[in-house]
Write a protein that binds this DNA or RNA. Structure first.
Length: 617
DNA sequence: TTAGGGTTAG
């Protein structure tokens, strides 16, 4: 211990206590072991062995009330702590005092003291205590800057390994407390100091970055980990692959799979599931073909698909409007002896409801109950939504009342689904009654609840009521979100005030909200409806400047806009551009073409290209 | 210690 302490490069010691610590009278009688200090010694220092062991005993037994009188002015918790350091108290005891004094006296110890304690614990290899101390410090104490932490740490110790462990756990503490920016800053600074971090902190940090959609930082950390020779593991690769997949950067995800090979790490079922999900959700044209090919590849390579593999694919095929393939996979899953979960059934119920096949969805609910699965609130929300989309409001309400009676824990989403359906069918009063029920059921109306009502009032043309709700929402501390703005923009566009609506884009960016495809498409549709497709093109440029490529709906809007203006050449040009970009035309695209262009002699072929009778010949 | 589901907006 002494040897280790000598290795600490200490800053000049703070002045010793002016007054030597004085043992309160009560303490002369209460300590049992070791032998009490002599009654004559009313003034003692922690360097006196008997007094030291008394204090140590009090700390170990957590007899704080007896310790408290020692901390009266001019002694402070901080200089008492310094005494503990100077008197070579064991790290455990110092830690116990540190935490108690922070909680009991609401003091935040200095970074110097924190780092000193951390290095003591590192010397003693008490890593779980370092982890919890840092978690506590990041969670409860005054915020501190990364640079001052590093400064204090290297002043305390030049032990490379110990300091690396401490910083590793500091980064982890930031991640676990949702302070990702600080975690990344700590990671960068560790590189400046040449400290070596591990996957214990880097993997969770990568995971956090994926959740927040920060794909650029995710890639930076990954590359930096390789450069700093951090020993990457399977989880590192899977997490980075997930980051790229979520951002739609599938070829980069593929590059990481190649990196894995270089490292001699084989992709596992998580790797494949992540990639398959990436293709299902962001794969563009032919995505399900590629996803299916990945399923075959994993089987060939001896990686066994699991529940999640099938869930992801079933969801993907439903979203691709391929009900047959989705149901085939459900069957295949059971043939593989894989038991579907509640989630699997929910995906199937969602898919069937989306196709309007409520009866089939209900049959599946029966099947899952027979198999012993308890339908979740998600299951019910899906079925209620299915009824609502088919305008079967009576059935939706009946199911809602039933599950309420059964004691299913319905949530804001359940209410919102039904409220929105009422608002859309002109029964806003019924919606309001439901909101009252929400309050009695102790379910808090959310921003989405307000969005449903605001949309409803706008649809009715009751601008005053909508504006009032917007104010009420803010008063209640609920901040308008992306959908709120989309609803407002849509309302303005429908009233022929697209120019006013465009101004809301600036308000959004002031509030830190990023407009979505829907935002821009709504604006473009607004201008097109006003007979001004060229203004829609200006919106499109703005959208592209913000890094968003037009999607199918964007093209549909433009094609329709130019069609209605009789500018068929332009309409056709946008259709071709859409096909060149690998976007797959949907039903709306065909409808637009049929309605607007077929009478002009154009006919769409199966690829979505247009031809006339003469070109076909 | 990494992968999968529900509402509102085009």
């Amino acid at each position: 211990m002494n040897h280790q302490l000598r290795r600490l490069r200490r800053p000049p010691p703070p002045p010793r206590l002016v007054r030597r610590l004085t043992l309160p009278q009560s303490l002369h009688h209460c300590h049992t072991s070791p032998s009490p200090p002599s009654p004559s010694s009313s003034s003692l220092s922690l360097s006196d062995p008997p007094f030291k062991s008394t204090i140590l005993d009090l700390i170990k037994k957590q007899h704080w009330s007896q310790l408290k009188p020692l901390l009266n002015p001019p002694t402070t918790p901080s200089n008492f702590l310094q005494e503990l350091f100077d008197s070579n108290f064991p790290s455990d005891a110092i830690l116990a005092f540190f935490r108690w004094s922070q909680l009991g006296f609401q003091v935040s110890h200095s970074l110097q003291h924190l780092c000193k304690l951390l290095t003591l614990l590192a010397n003693d290899k008490k890593y779980s205590k370092i982890r919890s101390l840092l978690h506590f410090s990041v969670h409860c104490s005054q915020p501190f800057s990364i640079s001052s932490f590093f400064h204090a740490l290297v002043n305390c110790s030049d032990d490379f390994c110990g300091n690396s462990v401490i910083v590793d756990m500091l980064v982890l503490a930031f991640v676990n407390n949702g302070k990702l920016d600080l975690a990344v800053e700590g990671f960068k600074r560790a590189g400046d100091y040449g400290l070596k971090l591990s996957v214990l902190s880097c993997n969770p940090m990568l995971g956090g970055l994926v959740k927040e959609g920060k794909v650029g930082t995710n890639e930076f950390v990954y590359r930096e980990m390789i450069r700093r020779r951090v020993e990457l593991n399977l989880i590192t690769f899977n997490t980075v692959i997930n980051g790229f997949c979520k951002a739609g950067k599938l070829s980069k995800a593929g590059d990481i799979v190649e990196d894995m090979k270089v490292w001699g790490i084989l992709p596992n079922v998580v790797t494949y599931n992540t990639l398959i999900d990436g293709f299902c959700k962001k794969g563009g044209a032919g995505k399900m073909y590629k996803a299916d090919a990945l399923l075959k590849e994993m089987v060939e390579k001896g990686v066994c698909p699991n529940n999640i593999t099938y869930n992801v694919l079933i969801d993907g095929f439903f979203k691709d409007d391929n009900v047959v393939a989705a149901l085939r996979l459900f069957k295949e899953m059971q043939e593989q002896q894989l038991t579907p979960s509640v989630l699997t059934y929910n995906l199937l119920i969602k898919g069937l409801c989306g196709e309007g096949r409520i009866d089939d969805a209900l049959k599946l609910r029966g099947e899952m109950v027979n198999l012993g699965f308890e339908p979740s609130v998600v299951t019910y929300n899906l079925i209620i939504n299915g009824y609502c989309k088919k305008k079967m409001l009576v059935e939706a309400r009946q199911l809602f009342d039933d599950i309420l009676k059964q004691g299913v824990e319905i949530n804001a989403l359940t209410f919102n689904t039904l409220i929105d359906a009422y608002c859309k069918s002109g029964k806003i009063d019924e919606g309001i009654a439901l909101r009252d029920l929400m309050l009695t059921q102790k379910v808090c109306p959310s921003v989405s609840t307000y969005n449903c009502f605001i949309g409803g009032y706008f649809r009715e043309g009751n601008i005053g009521a909508a504006d009032k709700l917007l104010d009420e929402m803010e008063e209640k501390g609920l901040r308008a979100d992306l959908v709120t703005y989309n609803v407002r923009i849509n309302a303005l566009c429908k009233r022929g005030e697209s120019r006013k609506a465009v101004r809301l884009l600036d308000e959004m960016s002031e509030k830190g909200l990023i407009p979505s495809h829907i935002t821009y498409n709504t604006l473009m549709a607004g201008y097109c409806r006003e007979g001004n497709p060229n203004a829609a093109l200006v919106v499109r440029r703005r959208m592209e400047k913000e890094g968003k490529r037009p999607n199918i709906v964007s093209y549909n809007v433009l094609i329709k806009g130019f069609c209605e203006k009789g500018k068929l050449e332009e309409a056709n040009a946008y259709l071709n551009e859409m096909l060149e970009k690998g976007l797959v035309p949907n039903r709306t695209t065909y409808d637009i073409i049929r309605e607007e262009m077929m009478e002009k002699g154009f006919i769409p072929d199966v690829d979505g290209h247009l031809y006339t009778d003469s070109t076909k010949a």
